[in-house]
Design a protein around this nucleic acid. Structure first.
Length: 384
DNA sequence: TCCTGGGTTAAGTCAT
DNA sequence: ATGACTTAACCCAGGA
């Protein structure tokens, strides 16, 4: 028996590559390759040549024992194989499970990232839209204010042009008799309507000549526009008049004198009030501590006439042109008015409409086309 | 040099 | 007629 074990110990590895240590009882299994008939070993125990010589006397005595050993051996072998397979399968399943978890984790991270990105984009979109909406609202408000403010001036200029045409002078000083040539020299005194036209034109063209641009062309242009609507004043007279009315306005404001509401003189004070109020408002808004939203700062309905002169008003008076409220510039784009001998009614009406257009009504009258150019700028971060 | 603000003055306007 | 108010025209100083 002991010999069998020693003799067959070297063959064991050939038989069972899985088993590391075969049991002692199984030390004599013949290698399957040695089985010439390729039959199950324990069913033909005598076919093992190595055991024939050593245990020739036992083959007949112990066939059931050998068979049992073979069965045990293969049984354990099968168990080991199954166990190994189960381990491998478990490891495989673990790996699969781990990888699946990783994949899910990565997917969730990606989704979270995408959600964050989409949220950021959404917030940016909302901000962008709010900014655009605020700009639109500011533009609309500005245009509405402009339209309302100029509507009175428009009517006056139109009426004045028509009155000139029909010989009816609305101004107290009078600018001529019926049928008088509109290019004839105007009287020394400026009619009220003429003053109002000058104020409106000067305000409208203020934007165009804001920067360090020589003011000479400004007054030349105003003079030309005045001539177009029937007032013959040269640039110097226009400039002088503008300075005088502003001087007198400031003088009264500073002296804090009360003017009667129905005062017949200085009828243009309301216009100047509005202009200076807007200028002072623009300065208030432009200050860093008074930035957006302007609605909380700008007081539109404050009657400046009845107010005592405040520091902001003073600032408005003293403000340099580049600090002042900018009003839309009217650009005469394609003037097609024929001025040669145009004293008839239709031409005069054209001039009247031209004046109307110059005040922002955006109406293209017959024979001339105007474009209202509005420059929107920011003062201290505020769109104006 | 140009522009602007301020001052001045004579003259016109208007209410009383 | 008178005084207050308003305006045209001129001048000057200071700043850019």
């Amino acid at each position: 028996m002991a010999n069998n074990v020693n003799a067959t110990g070297s063959d064991q590895n050939n038989v069972s590559p899985i088993s590391v240590a075969a049991p002692a009882v199984m030390a004599v299994p013949p290698p399957p390759v040695m089985n010439h008939k390729r039959t199950f070993p324990f069913s033909q125990p005598n076919m093992s040549g190595s055991t024939n010589s050593a245990s020739s006397s036992d083959t007949d005595d112990e066939p059931p024992r050998k068979k049992k050993k073979w069965e045990d051996f293969f049984g354990k072998l099968m168990k080991e194989v199954i166990q190994k397979q189960e381990e491998l399968q478990m490891r495989f399943l673990d790996t699969l499970e781990r990888r699946e978890k990783d994949r899910v984790a990565r997917e969730e991270a990606w989704r979270a990232q995408e959600i964050v990105k989409m949220n950021q984009e959404y917030e940016m979109l909302v901000k962008e839209r709010s900014v655009v909406a605020a700009k639109d609202a500011a533009i609309i408000t500005f245009l509405q204010k402009l339209t309302e403010k100029n509507s009175d001036g428009l009517k006056l200029i139109n009426n004045e042009a028509k009155a000139k045409l029909t010989g009816k002078n609305l101004g107290s000083g009078g600018s001529g008799s019926a049928g008088e040539n509109m290019l004839s020299p105007s009287p020394s005194r400026w009619p009220k309507a003429e003053i109002k036209a000058l104020i409106t034109l000067r305000t409208q063209l203020d934007l165009k000549y804001q920067e360090n641009v020589p003011k000479g062309p400004l007054w030349e242009e105003i003079s030309a526009l005045m001539r177009n609507i029937g007032y013959n004043r040269n640039a110097k007279r226009c400039k002088e008049k503008w300075e005088n009315i502003n001087k007198y306005y400031k003088k009264l404001k500073e002296s804090n004198k009360k003017r009667s509401e129905n005062s017949k003189t200085c009828s243009y004070f309301d216009q100047l009030d509005a202009i200076y109020r807007e200028k002072s408002n623009a300065i208030i808004v432009a200050q860093p501590e008074n930035q957006w939203p302007p609605a909380t700062v700008v007081q539109e309905n404050t009657p400046a006439v009845q107010q005592p002169v405040s520091t902001t008003d003073t600032a408005g008076f003293g403000a340099k042109p580049e600090q002042q409220w900018r009003l839309p510039t009217v650009v005469k784009e394609t003037p097609q008015v024929d001025d040669q001998g145009s004293d008839n009614e239709s031409k005069a009406l054209e001039r009247g409409e031209m004046g109307q257009m110059m005040f922002g009504s955006c109406v293209n009258g017959p024979g001339c086309v105007f474009v209202v150019k509005i420059e929107l700028r920011t003062y201290g971060g505020v769109l104006v």
